[in-house]
Amino acid sequence: MGTVMYGDGGGWVWMVFMPLLWIVLIGLVVWAVIRLTQGAFGGRFGGDVREHRESPEEILDRRYACGEIDAETYTEARERLAAHPPRPR
């Protein structure tokens, strides 16, 4: 009679399984939201946006613009870069 009324004692399986199911479900929702919004944030979260690598000339221009190097060093480095262009990757 006890088996019919209370089941076969397998209720503990559901007590363990249900929280795990909810954790997986919530994780899937979070993953889906992140995947779907990747493009909206540009390069920071976007998987499709290719990272722009600065060329040596761009690095040199940026450093000169920020005042890290003086005009003489900039001119000399520009001449060296023009004489020996970097190899393509």
Rank of each mutant, 00 (worst) to 15 (best):
R53I: 12
S55K: 08
A82T: 06
Y64C: 02
R78Q: 07
L25Y: 14
V29R: 10
H52F: 08
H84D: 14
M5I: 12
R87E: 08
E54T: 04
D61K: 03
W22A: 08
G39H: 03
A82N: 07
G67D: 13
V16A: 13
V33W: 05
L36F: 11
V29C: 03
L21M: 05
V49T: 14
G67K: 07
R53G: 00
G27V: 02
A83F: 07
V30M: 07
I34E: 13
R44W: 01
C66N: 15
G47S: 11
D8V: 04
P88S: 08
C66W: 01
M18P: 00
M18H: 07
L28I: 08
V30E: 08
E68Q: 07
W14G: 05
E79I: 13
A40R: 12
W31V: 09
R35S: 06
F41K: 02
V24Y: 04
R89K: 15
G39A: 12
G42S: 15
V30I: 15
W12F: 08
L21I: 10
I23H: 01
T75I: 04
P85R: 11
I34N: 13
D8Y: 04
G47I: 13
G47F: 07
E76N: 06
T37W: 09
T37N: 09
P88A: 12
Y74N: 02
G2E: 09
Y74V: 00
L81P: 00
G2A: 09
Y64M: 01
E76W: 04
C66F: 13
D8G: 02
F41M: 05
E51W: 06
W22T: 09
F45A: 10
V4D: 06
G39T: 03
F17M: 14
A32S: 11
I23G: 02
E57P: 00
G9E: 03
G11L: 09
P85V: 01
M1S: 12
G7F: 02
A32Y: 04
W22G: 04
T3R: 13
A71C: 05
P88M: 09
A65R: 14
I23C: 10
M18L: 12
I59K: 10
V16C: 04
A77D: 02
R87G: 03
P88G: 02
P88Q: 10
G47W: 10
D48N: 11
L81T: 01
I34R: 12
Q38K: 15
D70N: 15
V16R: 05
E58W: 02
G27C: 07
L20P: 00
L36W: 11
F17I: 04
V30D: 06
I23V: 14
V49G: 04
F45M: 13
H52L: 05
G67R: 03
P56N: 01
G27H: 06
A65D: 07
R62T: 06
I34G: 02
E72F: 12
E54L: 11
A40S: 13
T37Q: 14
D48V: 05
I59C: 06
